[in-house]
Design a protein around this nucleic acid. Structure first.
Lengths: 465, 465
DNA sequence: GGGTATTTGTCCGTATGTATG
DNA sequence: TCATACATACGGACAAATACC
């Protein structure tokens, strides 16, 4: 009949429910049949009547049976044609956590180390949402995102990034790529090509391509994008990473910024400013964001992936006012794609000041690792490598003076347990380059692991010199 | 000098920081000036030296001052071009929750009633993620989404929707619109126009337009889209809602389905099947999904918004195998846009059989409300209205035989506290139509409210007859 | 056919362990 | 660490439906 095991972690009533359900679906208990009364069954199975009753209630709620008061429960005719037999849990193999065992040192880009993110706080904020915001969970949210979160972002941007905007201009997106996609949708009527820095951020390149735009690579030097070269392109939009160029790490100079803005006004075009590493800079003076210099000409994009958690999937964009109107005309009645359960905890996190302190903590954290990595590289490699990138961000770009390909160097490192982002995966380079380039992300690796990791790299790669 | 109030809820260090910052920005403390030492200032203000130091550290982190070791802190020359004076925004007004007080009966489309969603269970699953999956929270996830969740979706689709696919073909997206956008990206090289049912789902129309496609409206009757008319379009892709046409509610007949598939093979085109209301049908026999009939020609899109929670923002698409390859070529290294904190709880929810239970519960729930609404409308309006839509979905479409515009009817209802989705917001209608049409969603309203709400509607609208 | 005993669903309070704050 | 809340499981009390005399 029924086999109930009180030692099993699944509750008794649920075990009974499952077994009844299977018997109904495969016809062992035929339609219109009357189930045993809760008293009888409970006596048979040596469990409480309520246990049986709870199982019956569940079947009732799901339409497997109907109840006649004071008479009994009767099996419904299930009219699903092709539900021949539906086992409840068909034993999904519990996926073994992808074993990172082999990775000893992680130099991949973007992942974060444990113990930096305040998990308990975030968990309690999430639970607070379940307690206090049930109503909003049951609804679709508006296009731009939660108003409260947008207010917090405005405050943050005004104070730390010199970005000047009102809440109406903020749009919450599920990652930078969505932001870029939306930017493309807004610019489709203005241009058929988008210019970007070469080398540049691969995901942006793909986003533009996927949106049907031609991408014009524009060379850059250590002061930033070559505005003269930009003038040769017909593109009316340019994608740049001025606060910390990806991947070279240079910071766009103020004169270059002003010339770029001049270009935007002349061409009646737009600048897409990707401030992906937020205000992660160490010992270098801040330069005002492009957006702050020309709010009407800049689409500013920021992200929480680097500072908080990559898996949160929250980014945001600041749109010029005319584009806000355009967006609302284009996308009226489309819901924001970031779940409320992510937006609200983030809002509370910022509101209560935890974000600011967390950012400070992270800056310090990365600063130490940045310094340690630069030192370790210089000590171990000397002038065999050149490090590009200034005191900012969460990665360095190495040019390694050897004959092997970057691909091969990365494979060799992988064999020794050092994970490095495959070159050409995270960035694109259109112009040919002489030596292999390696992008070394230092966000995930622990401070104390940096020196031994670099020594190991030196040992592995020395044979290629 | 400085006024610190320990009774104030903002921390002491922050009060000091704010005041110092203002004085620096407006020049009261000039560039290069040395700040008072932390010992002196703490004595002056009768606070701990740490309090002063924390404030100084914050200013330091933000680049307002520089520290010379064993000498003091000196004010930096703020070289931001146009930072004239940035007041910190104190105290964001705590937003009053949008008061739904005025809404007595909610007939808007898509929202859900409380007490149907198992919040406690979901909450505990979310917490389980914080406990057991910290590693994965610190990482970017892969393009297609969590493998475990995709497995569960495959199982569900196979059993309930006749969809035939492997995990490799499943892509998790943050809502239907993202799925449609991705579909557009995949079809860009094949076609410049997309055909869709007229009337049809507005968000889809907007998505196609925003992606730069021309949209060809194709008329339909109660058996589904007019395939003959479809042949007159040059579009190589057609968007349909066969399981429950939006908004008319008709179910596409099997012959029509087969003819549509024939079209796809002839034209070497694709069908985008939006199964938005999943298997929400009452007393009507299910018809196999288009995907099940022609897996190579159909892009199938499903969503969890209607059955679980709109605010979760999770949908999924099933791609033909050749498009999977295309996608991976196009979007390599782009992360899935659904947060891990949403994907994982959903996976566990499905794995443990709660999703199936919940779906059956919801079907029962909606079935009752559907019946009650149809009865109430027929009793109160008789032949003054015609109800279109068969026994499926979470809405009805009413054609009201009166001279007033739909807009006006909706406004009148709103005055009486009855919320109805604005027509033309959720659906588009290209062809002209004689009587005003009203889309009545019955997902949010409580069962017992349906009859009084309809009576009230009758009373309000009777003057327009 | 009417009264009574029994069966049955339904509702209530309570004890216990776990999870959350 | 302790208090609280919740899910689970239990037994008892009540009223309606049914069966029986």
């Amino acid at each position: 009949m029924f086999i109930l095991d009180s030692k099993n972690k699944t509750p008794l009533y649920r075990q009974l429910y499952q077994q009844l359900r299977v018997k109904i679906l495969n016809g062992e208990i035929p339609p219109q049949a009357r189930l045993a009364s809760s008293r009888k069954l409970s006596a048979d199975l040596k469990v409480s009547r309520n246990t049986v009753d709870t199982a019956y209630q569940q079947l009732l709620a799901e339409g497997y049976i109907v109840g006649k008061s004071r008479s009994g429960y009767y099996v419904e005719t299930i009219n699903n044609v092709n539900v021949s037999f539906v086992p409840e849990i068909a034993e999904v193999e519990t996926l073994p956590e992808p074993s990172d065992e082999k990775i000893k040192y992680d130099f991949t880009y973007g992942n974060l180390p444990p113990d930096t993110f305040p998990f308990p706080k975030w968990q309690s904020l999430t639970n607070e949402c379940f307690r206090n915001y049930k109503n909003q969970l049951l609804k679709y949210s508006s296009l731009m995102g939660e108003l409260g979160l947008r207010k917090e972002i405005v405050k943050y941007l005004r104070v730390y990034r010199d970005v000047k905007c009102s809440v109406d201009q903020i749009l919450i997106t599920s990652g930078t790529v969505e932001a870029l996609t939306l930017a493309c949708q807004l610019l489709r009527s203005d241009t058929t090509a988008i210019a970007m820095e070469d080398p540049g951020f691969r995901a942006a390149y793909l986003a533009f391509r996927n949106q049907g735009f031609r991408v014009d690579p524009i060379p850059l030097n250590h002061h930033g994008i070559n505005v003269k070269a930009l003038h040769t392109s017909i593109a009316k939009a340019v994608y740049v990473t001025p606060s910390h160029q990806f991947p070279t790490g240079s910071i766009m100079s103020i004169t270059r910024r002003l010339r770029l803005i001049e270009w935007a006004y002349e061409q009646n075009g737009y600048i897409i400013e990707d401030d992906y590493s937020s205000h992660l800079r160490y010992d270098v003076k801040p330069i005002s964001s492009l957006q702050g210099l020309a709010p009407e000409k800049v689409i500013y994009i920021g992200s929480f992936s680097k500072m908080l958690l990559p898996s949160l999937r929250v980014a945001y964009m600041v749109l010029p006012k005319n584009l806000v109107q355009k967006l609302q005309g284009q996308s009226d009645f489309i819901a924001c794609s970031v779940p409320f359960l992510i937006q609200k905890p983030l809002q509370l996190f910022m509101q209560e000041g935890y974000f600011e302190s967390h950012v400070r903590k992270m800056i310090n954290h990365f600063k130490k690792k940045h310094k340690a990595l630069v030192c370790a590289l210089q000590e171990n490699f000397g002038d065999e490598i050149s490090i590009s990138g200034q005191n900012a961000g969460i990665h360095l770009l190495l040019e390694i003076k050897c004959s092997a390909s970057a691909q091969k160097l990365i494979e060799q490192a992988a064999k020794a347990g050092i994970a490095i982002s495959t070159s050409g995966k995270s960035w694109v380079h259109f112009a040919p380059h002489s030596y292999p380039c390696i992008l070394l992300g230092f966000s995930a690796i622990a401070l104390d692991d940096i020196l031994p990791a670099v020594r190991l790299l030196r040992k592995i790669w020395s044979s290629e010199k």
